[in-house]
C-alpha cells in the first residue's frame, strides 16, 4: 500500500524531457498550472490533455505510473463529483428523481473539474518523474537566488528539500517494517471502527518519529564529517546550463500554452 505513493520518485532516463534544464522545467510546470486554471473551455482542456500525454510519451514514463499517482486521489475526486452533482443548479434539470435534480451544468462542471485535477496531478508529477531530486532542488535554488537579498535562507531550504526527498523511500520502508512488527505482535491495523484505526496509528508513528530523529542526528554528523558548512563557498557537480535544445523545447511549450489560453477568445467558458 505504501509503495504506491509515487510523488517524489524519479525515473532516470535520457529523453528530451529528462534533459531539459531543471529551472526551465520548473517554470514550465508552474506556467502549466496557471494556464490550467485560467483556461475554462473544452478545446483548451483537450489540448492540455494532448500536451500532457505527448510529454509522457516523449519522456518514456510508462502510463501505468499515471494510474498509480491518481489512485490515492480517488476519494477526493469521488467527493467532488458527489458534492457538485447535487448542489449545482441550472435552469432545466437533466434527470429528476424525486427531490434529486441533476442539471446539465453540473455534469459539465464535474467533467471540467475532474479533468483539471487529473491534468494538474499528471502534469506536475511529470516534473518529479523526470527530474532527479538534486536537479530539482538545484533548479529551485537557482530560481530563488534573488531571495537571498532579503536574507531568505535559499540554500538551507534547498538542502532541507533534498534530504526530505532522499529519506522518503527510507522512511516508507521503515514504516512498513514497523507495521509488520506491530502486526506480528497482534496489533489490528486494518479492522475496527474509524477511531480504532486512528488509535492503531500511534504505535506506528511513535517509533517512526523516534527513528527519524535518530537518523537526523546521524546524518548531521555524517554531513559535518564531509565538511558541510552551509551554502557558503559551495560548488556544484552539475552546472546548470541552458542549451539550444532547451530553448527550442521551451518555445514549443510556450506556444502551446499561448494557444490554450487563446482558446478563451473563441470558445465560451464552461464554468
Amino acid at each position: 500500500m505504501l509503495k504506491d505513493i509515487t510523488i517524489g520518485q524519479h525515473f532516470p532516463g535520457k529523453s528530451p524531457v529528462h534533459n531539459l534544464d531543471a529551472r526551465l522545467k520548473i517554470v514550465i510546470t508552474v506556467l502549466f498550472v496557471i494556464v490550467r486554471f485560467m483556461s475554462t473551455n473544452f478545446p483548451g482542456l483537450i489540448l492540455s490533455g494532448v500536451f500532457v500525454l505527448a510529454m509522457y510519451k516523449l519522456s518514456g514514463i510508462p502510463l501505468k505510473m499515471l494510474k498509480k499517482s491518481i489512485k490515492p486521489l480517488m476519494p477526493l475526486i469521488v467527493f467532488t463529483v458527489i458534492l457538485n452533482l447535487f448542489f449545482i443548479k441550472g435552469e432545466t434539470p437533466l434527470i429528476k428523481l424525486g427531490f434529486v435534480e441533476i442539471y446539465p451544468e453540473a455534469v459539465m462542471f464535474i467533467i471540467v473539474m475532474i479533468s483539471r485535477i487529473l491534468l494538474l496531478i499528471c502534469g506536475t508529477s511529470l516534473l518529479t518523474y523526470t527530474t532527479s531530486t538534486i536537479a530539482l532542488t538545484d533548479g529551485l535554488e537557482a530560481l530563488m537566488k534573488p531571495l537571498n537579498k532579503i536574507n531568505f535562507p535559499v540554500h538551507e531550504m534547498a538542502m532541507m528539500m533534498t534530504i526530505a526527498l532522499r529519506f522518503i523511500p527510507t522512511l516508507i520502508e521503515e514504516t512498513e517494517k514497523i507495521m509488520n512488527a506491530q502486526k506480528s505482535r497482534g496489533a489490528l491495523l486494518d479492522s475496527g471502527s474509524f477511531s480504532d484505526k486512528i488509535k492503531a496509528l500511534v504505535p506506528i508513528l511513535v517509533p517512526l518519529f523516534i527513528s527519524a530523529f535518530r537518523r537526523a542526528e546521524e546524518l548531521a554528523t555524517a554531513m559535518e564529517c564531509r565538511c558541510y558548512h552551509g551554502g557558503e563557498g559551495r560548488t556544484r557537480l552539475r552546472q546548470l546550463k541552458i542549451t539550444n535544445d532547451d530553448i527550442r523545447y521551451t518555445a514549443v511549450c510556450m506556444v502551446t500554452f499561448a494557444v490554450i489560453l487563446s482558446m478563451k477568445l473563441f470558445f465560451t467558458r464552461v464554468i
Binding site: I134, T162, L165, R166, T170, R214, E218, A222
Partner: peptide, 12 residues
C-alpha cells in the same frame, strides 16, 4: 559510520 542509510545525503 555504521548505518549506510543515515550517511547518504543525495538521491543519486
Amino acid at each position: 559510520f555504521q548505518n549506510p542509510d543515515n550517511q547518504i545525503v543525495a538521491t543519486v
